[in-house]
Simulated scan of single mutants.
Amino acid sequence: MIDVEGIYFAVSDENRRKLLALLAQHGSLTVGELVGLRLLPQPTISRQLAVLRAAGLVTRRKSGTGRIYTLVPGALDGVVAELTELKHAAVMDGTE
């Protein structure tokens, strides 16, 4: 079951949205590769990725001594559908 509240929490942070965008752009990245992009310090990246994993937005797999993170395809579909419904309701209500 999808934790919509957890997803909203996960995407509410700008740094986590940046990490999601990078994973969407590059496919899969290790923490080391993300650190190499000089976005955030390593401990911060690891904490933010843990939040994204808990929300079901990214997966992690082992590769040697490292971990590879990948965006879960369609993970945001439920939230996008919910927001689209809200938008349509506002348009129909004349509040937009």
Rank of each mutant, 00 (worst) to 15 (best):
V4E: 08
E5R: 07
G6I: 09
Y8K: 14
Y8A: 14
F9I: 15
F9G: 01
V11F: 05
D13G: 11
N15I: 04
N15V: 08
N15P: 08
R17P: 10
R17K: 15
R17I: 14
K18D: 15
L19I: 15
L19Y: 05
L20T: 10
A21T: 13
L22V: 02
L22S: 07
L23M: 09
L23D: 04
H26K: 15
G27H: 08
S28F: 11
S28H: 12
L29T: 04
L29Q: 04
T30Q: 09
G32D: 08
E33V: 12
E33Y: 12
V35E: 14
V35G: 03
G36P: 05
R38N: 15
R38C: 05
L39K: 09
P43F: 05
T44Q: 12
T44A: 11
I45R: 01
S46Y: 10
S46F: 13
S46K: 08
R47N: 13
R47L: 13
Q48M: 12
L49S: 02
A50E: 14
V51G: 01
L52G: 01
R53I: 15
A55E: 04
A55C: 09
A55Q: 02
G56Q: 05
G56V: 00
G56D: 03
L57Q: 06
R60F: 01
R60T: 09
R61Y: 03
R61W: 05
R61K: 13
K62N: 11
K62T: 14
S63A: 14
G64L: 12
G64H: 07
T65P: 08
T65M: 11
G66K: 15
R67C: 06
I68N: 05
I68A: 07
Y69N: 01
Y69G: 04
L71Y: 06
V72I: 14
P73D: 05
P73N: 03
G74L: 10
L76H: 02
L76A: 00
D77E: 11
D77F: 01
G78W: 10
V79D: 01
V80S: 09
A81I: 00
E82F: 05
T84L: 10
T84M: 13
T84E: 03
E85F: 07
L86W: 08
K87N: 11
H88L: 14
A89W: 07
A89N: 15
A90K: 06
A90D: 15
V91G: 04
V91L: 06
V91R: 13
V91E: 06
V91N: 04
M92R: 14
M92V: 12
D93F: 07
D93E: 15
G94N: 02
G94S: 02
E96G: 11
E96C: 12
